[in-house]
């Protein structure tokens, strides 16, 4: 191939790559799936803040489990600014939590969605920086989803805004695609590194991880130690989980493998929700996986 041929090839490839990237992020899409994700995420945010409110005096204020001094030391080398810095009064915390709960509900109902969604994200983020030692995977997923939903038009469907005409008639929008792609890519990162982390442990290779997860009393919500009677089954589930997590980022994109990858996601996360006492986390991981569920192209029906 001559130098000119190589140049043309590179230019052609670059043009095609750019067009593909452009379509990947910016081709308008419907808000329907994002609306379902919004409803679940908003509801979960409301629930999270309701639970903080149940023991307000243990989490905030002068008798909090994590006081100002501890929080300052914990965040001494990191950028975790929050106005709930450990010196907040119970009243301030109470108002904050009620506002956050309200924002979560508004987000779920789709009421002033363009404002409620970023507000719910921001208020939850402020709480997250205040209560870092109490957090786990649930908070990571909920904040991730709320962050991306904030840049979408998720209130254009299944919302009070839509019902009362507070949003425009346009339901396909590039912002929906942009937000969906970011959720998808972020989810791939989570599974990939989650899988790599497991691959560093010997229990995920010798097939006993599933048993030891079942035998962890603090996590257990339903007794599934019966799995110890079937070591081969336990081993297959262990290895299946390991390889599924690592391969998720590659296999969830092709149409042929996507349904299988999502089906496994359903069983894994439903299992975590039912058996391992993390129904909230399991549920939100399932909700996040909705981002990969293809939706009917409504442009066809509207244009017809």
């Amino acid at each position: 191939m001559s130098g000119l041929g190589i140049g043309r090839y590179v230019v052609g490839w670059t043009k095609e790559f750019w067009e593909s990237l452009d379509a990947f992020f910016f081709r308008p899409s419907d808000a329907e799936v994002l609306a379902w994700i919004r409803i679940a995420t908003g509801g979960m945010i409301a629930y999270i803040h309701l639970v903080w409110l149940l023991r307000l005096e243990s989490f905030f204020g002068p008798t909090a489990l994590l006081d100002y001094e501890s929080l300052t030391m914990l965040h001494r080398n990191v950028w975790k600014w929050t106005y709930l810095d450990g010196r907040e009064s119970l009243w301030v915390a109470c108002v904050h939590e009620i506002l956050a709960l309200g924002a979560g509900l508004a987000m779920a109902l789709g009421f002033w969605t363009r404002w409620a969604t970023p507000a719910a994200w921001f208020l939850t983020l402020m709480t997250a920086h205040r209560l870092a030692p109490f957090l786990f995977g649930l908070d990571q997923i909920v904040l991730m989803l709320a962050m991306y939903l904030s840049v979408s038009r998720c209130g254009d469907r299944w919302s009070i805004d839509k019902r009362f005409g507070l949003v425009g008639v346009q339901t396909s929008h590039w912002q929906n695609t942009f937000a969906t792609r970011l959720i998808q890519l972020h989810l791939c990162v989570i599974y990939f590194f989650g899988g790599l982390g497991k691959a560093r442990g010997w229990m995920w290779w010798d097939g006993t991880a599933m048993w030891y997860a079942a035998a962890s009393y603090e996590y257990q919500s339903l007794d599934w130690t019966w799995i110890g009677r079937y070591p081969t089954l336990g081993s297959i589930l262990t290895h299946g989980t390991l390889f599924w997590e690592i391969a998720y980022a590659a296999l969830v994109w092709p149409r042929l493998t996507r349904p299988w990858v999502l089906a496994i996601a359903f069983f894994v996360h439903a299992g975590i929700a039912l058996f391992m006492g993390m129904i909230t986390f399991g549920l939100m991981m399932l909700v996040a996986n909705l981002a990969f569920v293809p939706q009917a192209d409504r442009r066809c029906e509207t244009s017809s």
């Binding site: 975790k80 920086h129 996590y219």
Partner: peptide
Amino acid sequence: VDWMYLDHGYFFFAPNPGPS
């Protein structure tokens, strides 16, 4: 990374399920 709450290694039951 810190302020946006992206500072996670995504270690779920990793490297091994351990004692509580």
